[in-house]
Design a protein around this nucleic acid. Structure first.
Length: 359
DNA sequence: AATACGGGGAC
DNA sequence: GTCCCAGTATT
């Protein structure tokens, strides 16, 4: 059955963990609701994102879209604006797609089986288990980075947690260990322990409620676990970002619906594949838009680092006339600009323009 | 199994 | 600078 033996006193472990959680858990906004829809929102936002970052977003989001149907009917532009700055924007699109399916196919009730909830867009193995256990009290595993770190130490599991295959080992372990009395507190307790006590570096073992159950602590190996390999390359790309002004409007373009920053708005950009002198920018622009772009002036220059990509951006301001504007672009006023969802680098450019008084 | 997908905080 | 975070979708 299990890939290894559980050597600890399961019932005592459950009790120690759940008691500690009841006593020490943080007062977080999504812990004040039992609405599966709102808990779902929190779990999506918390994917690869810190609790402190999520809190203000979560509050605004549930205020803006209090019910599942509110979100199902929301305009995507409004939705993305709410998500602006949180990152991983496909989460927002997938969440709405999932919510729409629940509204139509499940009469607005978030399904309570792993099979059904896992079929929803953006709901993977972790999120499925989290919503099932927290919202419905169903004893399902919810294995995230915290849980793998905590259990790798407690059970002395030395498999590389960077490998996709390894997650299954921890899912089996949780399935074996989970409390059927209080699955919600058990799963949340494991994660809370990882966040507050069993941290990546310098775990606070002397404060740990389950250190007597911890194999790594007994062998002094808590600092060596979890095993995690990591290798990633970061490419760099050069762009010219153009604020093209005409009267009181500025030209904006919508990014494609897939890939990086999908559906987000930005100032038109040109990739500088080769050495391009500032003088050539105007020519390129005029050509791209089959119109007149003049007075190009570099006003800023910055670097923006993504996970696997770095943008080196030169920001220009220019005047546009008689431009042939493609369908994915539009002229917007300063007021309209405030409504468009934009990503980090575009916010940097926008800030420079506002400071200069150009928009 | 690898890679793409954001942004911010900790060290 | 590097690593990590209440991961998932795509290839």
């Amino acid at each position: 059955m299990e890939a290894f033996k559980i050597a600890l006193d399961k019932l005592q472990f459950q009790k120690d963990l759940i008691s500690w959680f009841a006593e020490e858990k943080r007062d977080l906004p999504w812990r004040r609701t039992s609405d599966p829809y709102q808990i779902w929102i929190s779990e999506i936002m918390l994917q690869q994102t810190r609790v402190d970052t999520v809190i203000p977003y979560y509050k605004r989001f549930v205020e803006k879209f209090p019910t599942l149907r509110d979100l199902a009917e929301a305009d995507e532009e409004i939705l993305l604006k709410q998500w602006e700055g949180l990152g991983y924007y496909s989460r927002a699109r997938n969440l709405q797609a999932g919510v729409k399916e629940v509204a139509e196919k499940y009469d607005g009730i978030v399904p309570a089986s792993r099979k059904e909830i896992s079929s929803l867009k953006g709901v993977g193995p972790y999120t499925a288990g989290a919503v099932l256990s927290i919202a419905y009290g169903i004893p399902e595993h919810a294995v995230d980075g915290n849980v793998m770190r905590v259990l790798s130490r407690i059970l002395l599991i030395e498999e590389d947690i960077a490998k996709p295959k390894t997650r299954k080992i921890f899912e089996e372990a949780v399935t074996e260990l989970i409390s059927h009395e209080d699955p919600s507190s058990f799963n949340q307790g494991l994660m809370e322990l990882g966040a507050l006590i069993c941290t990546p570096t310098s775990p606070k073992c002397l404060l740990c409620p389950v250190r007597e159950h911890c194999a790594a602590f007994h062998e002094g190996k808590q600092h060596e676990l979890p095993t995690k390999t990591k290798a990633k390359k970061n490419k760099a790309v050069q762009y010219a970002m153009l604020a093209i002004l005409y009267g009181k409007s500025v030209l904006m373009e919508k990014r494609p619906s897939t890939g990086l920053l999908a559906n987000m708005w930005q100032f038109p950009m040109i990739e500088l594949t080769e050495e391009v002198l500032p003088l050539e920018i105007e020519e390129q622009l005029s050509e791209n838009f089959q119109g007149v772009v003049s007075n190009a002036e570099k006003i800023t220059s910055f670097k923006h680092v993504f996970s696997h990509l770095t943008w080196n951006v030169d920001g220009y301001i220019a005047k546009g006339q008689n431009l042939n504007v493609p369908s994915h672009m539009k002229w917007v006023t300063a007021e309209e600009l405030e409504l468009l969802p934009i990503s980090g680098p575009v916010q940097k450019m926008k800030a420079v323009l506002k400071q200069r008084g150009d928009v």
